[in-house]
Design a protein around this nucleic acid. Sequence first.
DNA 1: GAGCAATATTTGAAACGTCAAAGGTTTGGG
DNA 2: CCCAAACCTTTGACGTTTCAAATATTGCTC
Lengths: 171, 171
Amino acid sequence: MTESESVNVDLEIIVQGAQEGKKLELRLWLRMLSTTKLISQEIRRRLRNEFGATLPQFDLMAQLYRERDGLRLGELSKRTMVTNGNVTGLVERLETDGLVRRATPDGDRRVTVAKLTERGVELFGAMAAAHEGWLRDMMADVDPAIITELWQDIGEVKTSVSNHLSGNDFD
Amino acid sequence: MTESESVNVDLEIIVQGAQEGKKLELRLWLRMLSTTKLISQEIRRRLRNEFGATLPQFDLMAQLYRERDGLRLGELSKRTMVTNGNVTGLVERLETDGLVRRATPDGDRRVTVAKLTERGVELFGAMAAAHEGWLRDMMADVDPAIITELWQDIGEVKTSVSNHLSGNDFD
DNA sequence: GAGCAATATTTGAAACGTCAAAGGTTTGGG
DNA sequence: CCCAAACCTTTGACGTTTCAAATATTGCTC
């Protein structure tokens, strides 16, 4: 059936054309998402294999590493973009692993402050160094100028998105 | 050793000036990750509120929408970048919701093929249209030229990452 | 100073995510 | 044939994620 074949070809051309006509924003989003997933999975695998840690744990510890006096769980929640309930569980597991210690300040007994233990500081230091190296390796083929440019332009995207959220706004 | 100290100072100034103390790759990664999280959370919230669906379900249905004859679960797993075990559960839930149907072809009884039902096709069509609009809104303040440029440059990052994975390579 | 609103964390249910092990099915070499 | 290797999906253990409801504490108002 040469006719139906040629019809199919035409359809494919049309579809292709339409796909490239796929909205720019959607196309960018799909690529951002898949790239981020790819990198996350690689980092996750390596954190697991080399340090027995998870990515969320790493993120949380990174915040506590910066603020050596500790942070309230709510503050941790904001900085890691993770819900309150989730922070509870994360900190709980890190505490049983001896990497984090929880304490309630005398001033306000509603509050719980999480702080890295010595072991936590030590472990995170090692993980952070490795983590940075992994990223450098993964992006080794990308021109540094492009990396800087990407950083700036993604900043613009982030700003735009922040200004167009439906629910609660900024913070 | 004053000499080595001055060397250190010089190095730090250079490093600080060049990248504000953080390696380019790490800085880019942190920004990509937070931006992706921000957009994901917004899409998730809207999918939930307006359609009662989740983002992973949306992703999976998107693949089945393209391949109207259905896909094997393993193929779905690759395309959605989700593990096999996870696909099983996702498809199970979508099936109880009447959006997807599972079948085992006569030729090979190891295989399970998932396919959108009519309701699934209909619902996904509506979700996809809304989804595209949300993205356009969120990125409304970004110059289209920059969006296209980002798409290309992130493509370079993705390629580089793909070529520097530790475990299994390409696909 | 009693109660009510605001703040901060925890809990519980449901879904998503990984990995590794186990369960069927097919296929191919002897 | 047959049985061992390869293939595909499911299962189970554990961790992450969200949301909403529950709990606890503080602070403020009247």
